[in-house]
């Protein structure tokens, strides 16, 4: 409605000062100020604290440079955290993508009851991670097997597969288990981490499915029809047409799942508490204990900054590629 009458007014306004441009700036400035202080300001503050000596309750802003970083990287627990984060992220993202894409393709066959199925698959995402963690802890709690198994070990015993029983979330084995000279932890995959990864995949694969389903529905049928006319097989259509067109979806999913996995905290707390021997510990958990139990604010801030850098490694290339596409 303003469009038709705006012309003379704009001319009038630009003579004084361009109110039409100032108002939007004023309107968003509260949120800009809030974000500047409460997000970027605090990131800067955390970065500053991480280079001070503040490792007791009483603030001590003596500058120590990268000393806290040097110390956390020498710490057994932190080294285990980094190893676990990498393993968890890779397995979790790969699992979610594979399972989500499979479910999406199956649901995309225009089957009956699709809405119901979609809701069922999406449902785990609505649960709190504490609930997920507690339930999966019951499932993967090994019990005193073979004499007195519980959870999944009990099921295995009932169906006569005692040989498959093992410690699940309590097994301290690291596979393959070699330790490089410059590290204090063994590499690479802590077996106890896998049940936890499975719980996380269960939680988030429905969400990935929904994203892929939206992507598949967005691919115009004409493209597929044209390919069929040219004699392409269904596999070729999937591999050469659908998959490439789903790339932006995959990228978005990787970002969302990736930052979820780098920040995971509640799942660890509910499911394993980080044990055995930090096989399932994560930087977020370590940071919480370092700051709120050990009062080592500077060391905790250093851990937080490392987490930020890990997330940035994932997100910055994404934002960059988005910008390139837009330009």
């Amino acid at each position: 409605m303003a469009r038709t009458t705006a012309l003379p007014r704009i001319r009038a306004a630009s003579r004084r000062w361009d109110w039409e441009r100032i108002i939007p700036i004023l309107m968003i400035s509260p949120s800009i100020i809030a974000i500047a202080i409460f997000v970027y300001g605090f990131i800067g503050w955390t970065g500053y604290v991480s280079m001070t000596k503040w490792n007791t309750l009483l603030p001590d802003y003596t500058w120590v440079g990268l000393e806290n970083y040097r110390r956390i990287f020498q710490d057994v627990r932190f080294q285990a955290d980094i190893r676990n984060t990498v393993v968890f992220t890779v397995v979790f993202i790969a699992g979610c993508l594979a399972l989500g894409l499979t479910l999406a393709i199956l649901l995309d066959q225009r089957i009956r009851g699709e809405n119901t199925l979609r809701s069922i698959y999406l449902f785990p995402m609505a649960l709190s991670l504490i609930v997920t963690g507690t339930i999966w802890r019951w499932i993967f709690f090994p019990g005193n097997y073979p004499a007195d198994p519980s959870g999944i070990n009990l099921i295995l015993a009932k169906v006569g597969l005692e040989g498959l029983q093992w410690g699940w979330i309590t097994d301290p084995t690291i596979w393959p288990g070699s330790r490089p000279e410059w590290l204090k932890v063994k590499l690479l995959v802590p077996l106890a981490l896998l049940p936890m990864t499975l719980a996380a995949i269960w939680q988030m694969s429905g969400f990935t499915m929904a994203m892929y389903l939206a992507g598949l529905r967005g691919i115009p049928d004409e493209l597929k029809e044209a390919a069929r006319v040219d004699g392409a097989s269904e596999w070729q259509i999937f591999r050469l047409i659908e998959l490439p067109l789903l790339r932006p979806i995959t990228l978005s999913a990787v970002i969302i799942l990736g930052h979820f996995s780098l920040k995971v905290f509640d799942l660890v707390m509910a499911m394993t508490g980080g044990g055995p021997a930090f096989a399932t510990d994560m930087p977020g958990v370590n940071m919480y204990y370092t700051v709120f139990q050990g009062n080592a604010f500077a060391k905790g801030s250093a851990i937080a900054m490392i987490m930020l850098i890990l997330v940035a490694l994932l997100i910055v290339p994404y934002l960059y590629s988005n910008r390139q596409e837009e330009m």
Partner: peptide
């Protein structure tokens, strides 16, 4: 520790 339950961590 050799005489403890192996599932102690949970």
């Amino acid at each position: 520790l050799d005489y403890t339950n192996p599932d102690y961590s949970a």
